[in-house]
Every structure is written in structure tokens, then in C-alpha cells.
Write a protein that binds this DNA or RNA. Sequence first.
DNA 1: TCACAATATGGGCATATGCTCATGCTGGGG
DNA 2: CCCCAGCATGAGCATATGCCCATATTGTGA
Lengths: 315, 315
Amino acid sequence: MSDDGDVPAQDIAARAGWLYYVGGLRQDQIAEELGISRQRAQRMVARAVAEGLVRVRIDHPIAECLELERALRQKFGLSRARVAPRLGPGQEALRAIASFAAPELERVFRDQTPKLIALGTGRTLRAVIEQMPTIAASQHKMVSLIGNVSPDGSASFYEVIMRIADKTGAPHYPMSVPVMARDAEEFATYRALPHVQSSRALAAQADITIVGIGQMADDAPLFMDGFITEAELRAVQKAGAAGEICGHIFDADGQYIDHPVNAFMVGSRVPVNDNPVLCIGGGVSKIKPLRAALRGRLIDGLITDEITAAELISR
Amino acid sequence: MSDDGDVPAQDIAARAGWLYYVGGLRQDQIAEELGISRQRAQRMVARAVAEGLVRVRIDHPIAECLELERALRQKFGLSRARVAPRLGPGQEALRAIASFAAPELERVFRDQTPKLIALGTGRTLRAVIEQMPTIAASQHKMVSLIGNVSPDGSASFYEVIMRIADKTGAPHYPMSVPVMARDAEEFATYRALPHVQSSRALAAQADITIVGIGQMADDAPLFMDGFITEAELRAVQKAGAAGEICGHIFDADGQYIDHPVNAFMVGSRVPVNDNPVLCIGGGVSKIKPLRAALRGRLIDGLITDEITAAELISR
DNA sequence: TCACAATATGGGCATATGCTCATGCTGGGG
DNA sequence: CCCCAGCATGAGCATATGCCCATATTGTGA
């Protein structure tokens, strides 16, 4: 996915990016240096950016964001809060969060002392992983909190643990089983599977748990991705669904709702054993679920964006 | 030094840099977003770069550099070698090395397990530190290998340990004594000082030792900075001086030369107790000293640039 | 309070950059 | 062996960027 393409060309791209961003050369200088046309130099620089070879980080604590972090910690009793500066009105919050959270996650993996890291799934986590560089971190172990098979039998597209394993080389324990069972019997079967039991047991000992969060409006990812039917969605909405973490649906108070669809998720509910849970997510659609999760103390760490943070604080 | 200036303006600069490099907005969009003129937006972006708020890293192992690293390790029995891509003919090797070495050094400090880090001094190390972000790393301790007082009594300008302490908050033990004594008596006095003894004892236990390297041509830094006289320089040159590490001068075989100026350096000689020594340096002037240090196995790790590496390999 | 110095600001322009398009090249299938 | 598809290349152009300069603003000392 990220390692396809022409390797020597990528080499040139990396070099062009280095010369442009680190060296501060102009594109015609790069062209001369690398013995290519000015045109190609520009394409190579663009490619380096597009392929994520160029990693930009802003090394300055912007006052407003710091203040929001402090306020989040205080208001919701979080042990950890990070706030990404906003990227302008037209921009997805996801972009800001991904670029911002990646170095945070990187820090976790850079730690030399072996850690057991439990992971959720979803678009947000995927986007964050995408922004992470390749780092050797085989001292850590990773376990998935949630199954990796879609209702249609295909591999869940927003699987995270395999991707991060590609980047870190850490031993990993995906939960190779459907995300949810269709009935009580299937549920019992899945839960009884040895590798499911061991995954869940492992997750219960995690040093850190990292999850995304989903909304439960009419375009809830749980519904859009086919995990629950429209009827089920309506039903849980009626039951007060405000959001979900790892597919487990909770109400506005952060209490997991008592409903069949919520009973058949094979994966674990956070927090597991009071292990610290770090949630990554932001954007208008996630405000409601976040507020609920925070109220119910489902999470004790949050990485979000400035606008979402301000919203969470204000009301 | 790096934390002076108008703070709210720096805030805007950081935000502008974020929007420009991470958000990919154009300067007029940034201007609108931040409610400033297009002009000011451009100045703020430039400032963010100038003040080092924007940190760019190229996340791709360029094949030639990897190959040079492998070759260096093999040819000189190094345990660690990193090669920075060249920045074009007109550019200082220092720029390339500093940008490249900073993340490497950052890794050392990110490590959670407490380490004792022994540090040399010099322009190169200073430049590397300058490129490092601020990171809390109070778990580590740092000790200086070399005195911090110039012959004229002023603080040595290329002191490193204080700078890095500013960035990491790590407890540090500078060697508060002149770099070198003028005679045997002074030397004995300095060496006998309790804090010098304890610094040297600490350095002897370092988990990692990080040093620069100096050349001994007519513009040797040891001479330019007034540590040795022109007559002394001539003398050691005649005695075969090929380079110096922490002021200790060695010949082309990496053997410390037997000469009075070399006897009065208060600091330690590497390697101390066979502790691993990482040397950072490159550029044409450093090829001779590096070749000597490598031949004498004074160092067992090297961070340099592509051109220097190629030169070291070729002959 | 005024005058002056230092710095910040925006207009205007030279140019570096990015994009589009027409053309060339390479590689696979008929 | 030829033809076509797909991608890479360089020319040309629209524009985003960076820089210089004249003016405004802020801060400072008499």
C-alpha cells in the first residue's frame, strides 16, 4: 500500500524532498544536482510529499491548544489530553488529528520498556497509523480489541493492528473472528474459541489501550459498514445510543446500552480492568459520542482537534 | 537564545507553519484563517522555519546512503553508522549532518530507561542540538567529557551540555574547569578537584558517549579557539597530529600522541572503559581525522554525510 | 508632549512553483 | 512485427511566493 511503486524513483523523490525541505535548494538547483529536468524535480518533490516521505512537525506549544488541553484534563478528569491546532474551516478534522497524533503514538512505540498495547480499529486510527514512520519496535506486543472480519466475510477494511505491525515489526495478536455474532449461539461459539479467549485475556492486561470512537447518527459507521442493519440502528438510537467504542454502543451518559446488538460484539469493552484508555478522534460528528464517553469515564486520555476540544469544553 | 522573541507572534508563526506545511493551505488562505494580511502570513511561515518551529524529516532509506552505512560498518567494524544524504556541492556538510543526526540523538533521549550520557563539545554537536526539539527526558543523566572554560577565562562557546539540558531537562554535570592546564602543576591541581574527579568517574560509567571530532590542519579549532598556540600546533603537526577528540590529539593511526599539550587536557580520552563512543562529524576537513580515529578504534559509531562516507570507504 | 529610532505593515514586482497539455516512450497483446 | 494503452516527459502558462521599498506604528528618551 505505501511501499509499492518504483523504488529508484522513490529514492530520487526522497532525495529531492531532502534537498528541497532540509537543504532549502530551489527546484532548478535540485534538478541540476540530481541531473534531472526542473520539471521532474518538481514532480519528485511533490511525490515525496504525497507518499509521506516528508514528515513535517511543528515544534511549538500553541497557547490556545495548551489551554484547551489543560481545560479538558480538568473538566473531565483526564490523565492525558492533546489538542491539535485547527486546519481551517474547509479541512477535515481528521487531517489535523492524524498529523498530530502520529508523533504521540510514535512516542509510545519508541519507548524501550516492553509494553502491551491494545488497539481498536476505524478510519481515525488508520489515518494516524498512515502518518507514522517505520520504526523498529519489536519490544512491544499489540493485541486487537475487536474482531477483524466483516459481516460479509471480508477482512475489515479499517483494521489497524496489521498496518501498525508493518511499521513497527512488533508481534501482534489480531482477533481473527467476526466483529460481531448474529445470535447468542454464534456469540458463545466465538467467545469460546481459544484464540479469542487468549486475545481478550491479553487485552485485559494491556498497559495502554488506544481506540477510536464512532457516532450513532443515521450514517453511523457501524451501519454504513454493514455491521448492523438499519432497523437495528433505529432501535439503538431509540434506546439512546450516543456513540460507540470498538462497536460497543453507549448512551449519552456513557453507559453501555442494554440491547441485543450490543450483546453480540465479540471484542472487549473499554475500559478493560481499568487499564488506561487513550481515545483519538474529533470533528463535529464525534462531539456527541466524545461527550458521552467522557461523562461515563470510558476513556481517560484524549487526542482531538482544537474545534472539537473547544466545543467539549464550552458546554 | 532560541526562546527569546515575541511569544504571541511566535504562536502565530507556529500556527501559520502548521497550516502551511501540515494543512497544505496557501498563504492567502492562511492569512484569511488567521485574520492577518497575506504578507504577514508569508512572514510568519518564513519565521516558523527560521526559528526552527517547523521540523522536517525525510522518512525514506535512500539506497546509496544505506549502502554506505553498511560499508562503513563492515570496513571499520563499527556497531553503528548513519549517513546523511548530501545537500549539494555548495552546502556545508554540517547542515546535512545536523538535520540528520538530531532525530538520532532524539531517539537516545526518548528512551525511557535511564541512561548516563557522556558528551563532548564543538560546533558540530552544537549544530545537532540546535536541531533537536524540546523533549522531557529527565530520566537521563549527562556528564561532560571536557572542561568548559576557555583559556581566556570565558565560558567555552561550543559548550553542549547546558544547551541540551535546556531542551531535555535532564540533570547534567558539566566539568567546570578549564579545558586544559598550562603546566603539570596546574594539571595536577585541576585533576585533583573533587568535582573534576567525580565528573571523570561518571564519564567512565557512561552508557553512551557522544563526541565530535576536530582536524589538526593550520586552522585547527583547537588553535583557532586559542586552546593551543601556533607553536604548539606546529609541534604536534610535526609529531603527526591527524585529529583530536575532546582536545586529545591523535596521529594517523589513531594513537594519542605523546606531547606536552596532549598531557594537560583535563577531560577524558575516549574510549573510556571501552564504553561505546558515537562520533558525529563530516566534511572534507574531517576525513583525515575520521580515518585516523576509525583506524585506531577510538570510536565505534559514526554519523556522517554521504560525501565523507564515500571518501572514507573509497581509500 | 514631542521627536526620533526601531520595527512592523502592505503595495508592487520579479520569479519560483505547480499545473495542463501535447508529445514521446515503453511494454504487452494481437 | 505492429499497434495501442499507459505512463513519463518537457514546453508553456497561470499563479503563489518571496523580497524590496515606502509608509505606518510602536516604543523610548528628552
